[in-house]
Design a protein around this nucleic acid. Structure first.
Lengths: 244, 244
DNA sequence: CTCTGAATTCTTGTATGCAAGAATTTTTCG
DNA sequence: CGAAAAATTCTTGCATACAAGAATTCAGAG
């Protein structure tokens, strides 16, 4: 009846997304549709458990069912949607247990990334990551949540890239989708920010020193701390459901 | 002109795949098409670099373009195909560098799985994994390559399942696709078998003892050994291209 | 003979039509 | 009035039609 999703002002949210001009080139619909839909899910605009009606999405997104169906398939594979045969796909539940499972995997993955990155860290690469760190701090001082998120993610992403391992980056991107979802879901937890910034600086130091073991350990613990805080926030939120 | 794929007896290979009866139930075409196509790629029946013509695949698989296109999208996301806009998708190259990248990631992932699994290992679970190990040995003594592959994979898979971490299993499945491809590509390397069996026994012992650190380390090294041998075999093969 | 370019053919990207299964509503019987 | 069943409506799964871009071929000029 009145699942959370039914009250979502979907049209308004979609209006914010820049619509591709009618004079667009061929082959861009799939990608853009995936991006739009993914954004709606990750940011929580489409609530967990919400049913996706293909025809309705077509109208909202202004495309035919083909790209919509492809996007649904793609996001199902990414684990953001759940699909049952002959039934509407639904937005995957944001299970706290699953996020706890994410902790072990993401921390291990980023730990490996740190280990490999430290061995390949040039001054230039470290400087670039440092810049991302300062950008994050800037957004922090300004209380700009989206910018903070973005810079934080870029910081971590750059380290994974620096590892030079394309498979690692691929896996990390997949995991990052779920982490982002959890982040958006648990409204900001500013307590954690200061600690995160300190940890980033220590990670940078380890990379600068080229100390693989230390970089690995610090990244592992940093990720573990962050995600654990996230789980705590989510459990808190679950305890007192709608104390806005 | 005559790329390796053009000479592939595709029709014959597909004939081996049991065709779903006309009286099948709806909703199974996508999955079965993905499975068939994936098998062709993983086993090497569709050679790396081969161009996939959608219409041709439709004829071969006996379905329309819709499920074929969905399957292509899915396998592209899995990294088995490469797609460029408005161009035919091609089977992803089996880059040795990428397999070397896999070594670090898969060994780390399975190491984590071993660590978590050891902490949860019941007698029953260990016995089940032991059974898979003996099944593998049986296929070994009979020189049955496919059975050996299957049992080996089941052994590893069961350990990841035992970890109780669904995210870990999800990632492992993705990685396993690429590992399987590499395995099929480098024809059997029997030298490795005996060593692998010994390592499996040691892994089992660590699981039985519930020693998380040991299980983790042994799995990590076992995977590293296996994949390193695989890379060596592939490099060997690359050096003397077609010495059948 | 070769190179350029235009026209044709082929292939993919997108939209839509049709049928099977699911959900819902209505109707009928107890 | 309640419940079960039948019919209607709705939704997805698959097939196909059409359009835009890419590849190929063929002709003509240098």
């Amino acid at each position: 009846m009145d699942s959370p999703a039914d009250t979502t002002p979907l049209a308004a949210l979609l209006a914010q997304v820049p619509q591709p001009e009618p004079g667009r080139r061929k082959g861009a619909l799939h990608g853009s549709t995936v991006a739009k839909l993914r954004n709606l899910i990750v940011t929580g605009a489409l609530a967990p458990g919400a049913k996706l009606n293909e025809r309705e999405l077509c109208l909202q997104l202004g495309v035919s069912r083909t790209p919509v169906r492809e996007a649904i398939k793609t996001l199902t594979q990414d684990g953001l949607l759940c699909a049952l045969p002959n039934k509407s796909s639904v937005v995957a539940e944001l299970d706290v247990g699953e996020i706890e499972a994410l902790i072990d995997v993401v921390s291990t993955i980023e730990g490996l990334a740190g280990e490999l990155a430290a061995a390949r860290a040039t001054d230039e690469a470290v400087a670039e990551i440092g810049m991302l760190h300062y950008r994050m701090m800037l957004h922090h001082t300004r209380d700009e949540l989206p910018g903070y998120f973005e810079a934080n993610k870029a910081f971590h992403r750059r380290i994974v890239e620096l590892s030079g391992n394309p498979v690692l980056l691929w896996i990390w991107e997949l995991l990052a989708l779920r982490v982002d979802r959890a982040r958006y879901s648990s409204n900001l937890w500013p307590k954690r920010w200061k600690m995160a910034i300190q940890e980033h600086e220590q990670i940078l130091a380890a990379l600068t020193a080229g100390d693989a073991a230390l970089a690995s350990q610090r990244l592992r613990e940093h990720v573990r701390n962050g995600l654990s805080g996230l789980v705590a926030a989510l459990k808190d939120k679950a305890a007192k459901p709608d104390s806005a």
